[in-house]
Simulated scan of single mutants.
Amino acid sequence: MVPYRTLMGSSDSTLPCFLSSGAITKSNQALFLHAYPYDGLMFETGAECVTCKVKKPARSKHCGVCNDCVHRFDHHCIWVNNCVGAFNIKYFLAYLFTLTSMAFSIAGLTAAFLIQVVLLSNLMQGHYTDVHGEEHPVDASFLIQHLFLTFPRIVFMLGFVVLLSIILASYFCFILYLVMTNQMSNEWFKPSRFKHRSYRNIYSRGVWSNMVEIARPLTSHIKKRR
């Protein structure tokens, strides 16, 4: 195992947008070439990147945006303007978790404010008159319309944040599933291209080992010179 700081370079930031994702160059390609075996389907032995002119380790991919080959490439994230790879995926998970938690917190606080308004104003105890002049007790439909007309920005924000929370939580769970099964987004989408051939994930070593691999990314074992 190669020292983590050496692979990441001089950046000490813990943000996924600044951390090195694991760029492969001619000078460091030996660190990655034998980290994973080639499966002979998605990753072929002896493949070379036509752009970087380096041997492509298994599970690597060239990113056209960053113009680098990335070790254990997951995807290029426009949110952080960086590739998500072996050395910053755990920080990307923390980033997603933070965003999801913040979205749920804002939704909860906003909903609590509106509920407090309803309780203090005793709206549920009141009645309203419809267009035909008939009186009805306040129901959920009327309450939502009243709140939207009274606090349109707050109600709209609540709806938006709830939707955002669901999307973020779903994406976080998807990335967590990939981590637990030792897959990347890039690999998860690729098998559809090989429908005529059976594909088996040879990289999964059990949930615990897969998660440890995220915390301690695999690199090639380099023999010490005597």
Score class of each variant (00 low, 15 high):
T110V: 00
F148G: 00
N67D: 02
L31P: 08
G133M: 03
S10P: 08
S121P: 03
M124K: 10
S121R: 08
Y199P: 00
K90Y: 01
L93F: 06
H127M: 05
R72P: 00
F160V: 04
G9S: 13
L99N: 12
S10N: 07
D68M: 09
A58N: 14
R226V: 11
C173K: 02
T100N: 06
C77H: 08
H146C: 03
L119M: 12
L7Y: 08
H221F: 14
C49L: 10
I166F: 09
S204A: 07
V80G: 12
S10V: 06
E44I: 15
H136C: 08
L120D: 14
A23S: 05
C69G: 09
C83P: 05
L120Y: 06
V131Y: 05
P57V: 07
Y36D: 07
A47C: 04
P16R: 14
F43A: 03
V131K: 13
Y91L: 09
M184S: 15
K224F: 11
C63S: 12
P137F: 01
A58L: 14
N28Q: 07
A30E: 13
I214R: 06
A58E: 15
L158F: 06
N81Y: 13
S170A: 10
Y171M: 02
G40E: 06
A35M: 04
I78G: 04
Q125N: 15
F189L: 06
Q116L: 03
F194G: 06
N201Y: 02
S27A: 05
R216W: 03
K223H: 07
G64P: 02
L119Q: 04
I115P: 00
M180Q: 12
I144L: 14
L96H: 09
